[in-house]
Design a protein around this nucleic acid. Structure first.
Lengths: 105, 105
DNA sequence: GGCATATTTCTATCATTCTCGAAATACCCA
DNA sequence: TGGGTATTTCGAGAATGATAGAAATATGCC
């Protein structure tokens, strides 16, 4: 994973409102959660929620699927695992042997 | 860990420049890295680097220690582990059993 | 087609962030 | 104390982000 991709995903999760949204979606599991239900749960304006959802979707952390008039949102677990992998590989895994890694910034 | 704390740390890592800084510090290991060396490595203005370092330090992800005229920066591995723990516990761990968690957003 | 519900897009405002150069400060050494 | 290096603070400009109300669009149902 490119550093810029990881940064974009981290930034997406780095807003309290979006982190709440994402957490709610993860807790909803495979079943997902409709935008309207998300709105009730988080308690923000629909337009604000739409804005934040777009950012999460743009990073690949969240997916959407239409079911009739409602849009079901789901957390993309693979994306989160990729991000955690990046953090582990690039930023955490070599605490005890930093010299084994390319030291370029 | 509070959600707001996690969001602040994620936001701190969610900027490409800061993620580079953080990665360089992690790779430097326990020895740490002087601000000046960081600047050479990342290639940004000293004032910009200082600004970003402050944000990383404010979140607890990075620590600083004075050695004469130079300031040594170090990654705070405990903080990163706490953040990864939050993501696992709150956002990832219960993929297979979402109903066992408090569902409030 | 017409209505109802769900969601987005548009528009606007306010706040924050990123970046850098210049000036100021901190620390050490002679 | 004077000078030199390291780093921060100040000031400013351009860009981006968060928020929400109003209007527009999408979909299904009758």
């Amino acid at each position: 994973m490119k550093l810029e991709t990881a940064a974009t995903q981290l930034e997406a999760l780095g807003n309290p409102t979006r982190l709440r949204i994402y957490r709610a979606l993860v807790r909803a599991g495979e079943q997902g959660l409709a935008v309207g239900h998300l709105q009730e749960r988080i308690g923000i304006a629909a337009s604000t929620l739409s804005h934040h959802l777009h950012r999460l979707i743009a990073t690949g952390l969240v997916g959407q699927e239409r079911q009739a008039t409602t849009l079901i949102c789901r957390a993309n677990y693979a994306a989160m695992n990729g991000l955690l992998g990046f953090l582990s590989d690039e930023c955490c895994a070599d605490v005890r042997s930093p010299q084994t890694k390319d030291n370029a910034a």
